[in-house]
């Protein structure tokens, strides 16, 4: 019970997010209208992705310091689930853009959107990370080299996806300022669902990851013993 409190918290918060996010009164905005409810899903996916990818890099650094194979398993699973959340963020974003952007912007404007290129790059980098892991056979070597690539890629990627969108014009909300959204703009009615939602989705991501890590650790154990 003491260890599973956060899982219960996660379930409660997500129930709250989904039910209240879909039922609550939301402020009416031009163009956005009711699609603003997607804020509780789309933006939170990205936030959770960044948290999980940061966790992955943390474990990669720890691996290089300690050379414990356990840390490598943590790092790769955090990266994988982060990638999954990234894809979900893309999907929710695509749905949102369909109802808001396509009405007044043409396709070429959407394709050159810096936020979209940034996330495409992020996903490609983590796919490359998995390709790199797949191409190595030796377990220790795989762990070490992929940890090095993970740290390098993270350090290159995050400045560019935080800074690049601020330098270019964009359709995305919060242009010319914070790239994700304008926090002053956020209505208090949205805020009471939005902040818990971020925590909830992140906890769900961590939960999935811990399950995957446990499976991998068991696999490794049977590999070493049998």
């Amino acid at each position: 019970m003491r260890k599973s409190w956060w899982k219960i918290l996660c379930a409660v918060i997500l129930l709250y997010t989904v039910s209240c996010g879909l039922l609550f009164d939301v402020p009416a905005r031009e163009i956005l209208h009711e699609t603003i409810r997607n804020l509780f899903f789309h933006v939170c996916m990205w936030m959770a992705m960044m948290v999980l990818l940061s966790a992955s890099v943390y474990y990669s650094i720890r691996y290089l310091r300690t050379q414990q194979l356990r840390d490598d398993i943590y790092a790769v699973n955090y990266a994988k689930v982060g990638l999954l959340l990234g894809i979900l963020g893309y999907a929710t974003g695509a749905v949102w853009a369909k109802y808001t952007w396509t009405e007044f912007a043409d396709m070429s404007q959407i394709f050159t959107e810096p936020k979209l290129t940034g996330t495409a790059i992020a996903l490609l980098i983590y796919f490359a990370y998995l390709v790199l892991r797949g191409s190595l056979n030796d377990i220790d070597k795989k762990a070490r080299i992929s940890a090095v690539y993970n740290i390098f890629a993270y350090a290159m990627l995050f400045p560019s996806i935080w800074i690049l969108p601020r330098l270019m014009e964009s359709l995305h909300p919060g242009r010319g300022g914070n790239p994700a959204l304008n926090f002053n703009d956020l209505d208090s009615r949205l805020r009471i669902v939005f902040w818990p939602a971020i925590i909830g989705w992140t906890l769900l991501g961590v939960w999935i990851t811990t399950l995957k890590i446990r499976i991998d650790l068991l696999k490794e154990k049977s590999l070493l013993n049998g």
């Binding site: 790059i121 790199l132 191409s135 996806i161 690049l164």
Partner: peptide, 18 residues
């Protein structure tokens, strides 16, 4: 990784795009 230049392209292109 004892790989050819193809792996390098896979690893490098996303990083260099920005």
């Amino acid at each position: 990784a004892q790989q050819n230049a193809a792996l390098m392209a896979i690893l490098g292109f996303p990083l260099i795009i920005p």
